[in-house]
Amino acid sequence: MNFGKLYLVPTPIGNLKDITLRALEVLENVDLVAAEDTRQSLKLLNHFNIKKTLISYHKHNEQGKSMDLIEKIKDGKSIALISDAGTPGISDPGSIIVSKCIEENIDFEVLPGATAITTALVYSGLDTSKFIFRGFLPRENKDKRIIIEELKDRKETLVFYESPHRIRETLEFLRSNLGNRRISICRELTKLHEQILRFSLDEAISYYSEKDIKGEFVLVVEGKGEEEILQEERAKWEALSIEEHIKNYISEGLSKKEAIKKVAKDRKLSKSEIYKYSIDL
């Protein structure tokens, strides 16, 4: 049986010139296009004079529609999956059908292309060697708190998406949970009114307090700094006596010798000086 194939095709996040030649070739040659918003995608296809049958495929129907598309592929159809902007599967529908293709041993191909994550990350000037992308934060505070608890002590640069009507609330939330870290706010990337701002979170909150906010945002927040980590570690033992400090490390599973070494390093004292306080422990 000759199956068709699924193509996950990135589309421009703003500037239509950012579509790749390969993406255009795939869109011209597939049998049909599965689109997050058929009206939006029709504008894109019309711009490049591509005439294709469009099928709606979005987050509210992707579970059921994925199997429909799989059956079409089994019937020999080739299908391109696109979202409104960017790469399918990244904060957009796509991951479910990829999983089902793997389960069903269906051939699929992921094309490289536009994504706001890496564009914003490089614009930010923050550490690009390691980062964590968490997409849109949940709407409910209890769900947001779960995520921020996972992230607040991470050294990696943090990347979020945000919509204009939630930007103020999200900046306040980040400030109250992460402290006054540096942030790069990228708005309307690749579009006519693209704007890149680099602030502290306090400055960002002040800037947006009186602005009429429009556009889509990518927030790039610096990870937890080494100095902040050292200060927090210091705060844990500054209130302890040297004996208590040694006992604390022993309770964590260190030997007395290892505990003495760690305490000496923390307090910038000699091991022989710390040893005096450990004799009766």
Rank of each mutant, 00 (worst) to 15 (best):
L151F: 14
V220A: 00
H58C: 05
V263L: 06
E258R: 12
S241K: 09
I13S: 06
V110C: 15
E228K: 01
A264F: 04
A116D: 09
K257H: 07
V26F: 13
S241W: 08
K59H: 12
A35Y: 09
A114E: 04
Q40C: 10
I260Q: 10
T119M: 08
H60C: 01
V218M: 05
G94I: 05
I148H: 07
V220D: 00
S41T: 15
I55W: 01
Y208N: 06
Q195L: 13
P138W: 09
Y249A: 10
G94H: 08
S66M: 10
P112A: 12
S124D: 10
I246D: 04
K262N: 10
D127G: 04
A34W: 13
I185F: 14
D84I: 08
I50H: 11
L151Y: 03
L219A: 03
W237L: 10
T118C: 12
I19W: 09
A85P: 01
I117Y: 01
F173S: 07
S66T: 07
E194S: 03
N46A: 01
I213L: 11
D75C: 07
L54G: 07
D84P: 12
D18I: 06
E25P: 11
L189D: 05
R267E: 05
E188R: 03
T170F: 00
G64A: 13
A114G: 06
K265H: 09
